[in-house]
Amino acid sequence: MNIFRLTGDLSHLAAIIILLLKIWKTRSCAGISGKSQLLFALVFTTRYLDLFTSFISLYNTSMKLIYVACSYATVYLIYMKFKATYDGNHDTFRVEFLVVPVGGLSFLVNHDFSPLEILWTFSIYLESVAILPQLFMISKTGEAETITTHYLFFLGLYRALYLINWIWRYYFEGFFDLIAVVAGVVQTILYCDFFYLYVTKVLKGKKLSLPA
């Protein structure tokens, strides 16, 4: 465990908590893509099935359980408790265009052709693109609430920190996981445009709005 990995995990946790708190405090999930949140719940579910088969550390198990629980809580708030505030008309990304190719790819390119390993690979590939419905929604409405941009910032920062963690682990531990690294690079690249807007607008106190 190095500092980049730890701050990456904490950044991921911060993103998840920010989103939950935003929805809970405002009693509204306006501007949030339920589809992205469903995909993240699917990502955590398929990735953390090893909770049943192997124990790594108390930290590892607790974080996995927290991520899974929070992702289901978020989906519950969006699709059940605050369903009336869900902006379904703007959440129109076709998720089958992500899930089907990602599913196919995880069968073709994986470390080991076993059910758990294929599901783990599926989750890694799916996570890298799961934010697309949310970014699509923002590009459709042309704006995002500031708190939503903080959520996106921490979510993007998490995978960027993991990239540094992987460079670190490669040099000091000889650890290299091509699947995770390639997917992590793709995932981080998807946030670059957003990072630019976040730094040039949101951090200067302006609302994130896109030109019409």
Binding site: R5, D9, H12, D50, S54, I56, S57, N60, M63, K64, Y67, H111, D112, S114, E117, W120, Y162, F175, D177, A180
Partner: peptide, 10 residues
């Protein structure tokens, strides 16, 4: 390669 090795990450 130990397939478990990447599972220490989240």
């Amino acid at each position: 390669e130990d397939p478990k090795i990447h599972k220490d990450e989240l």
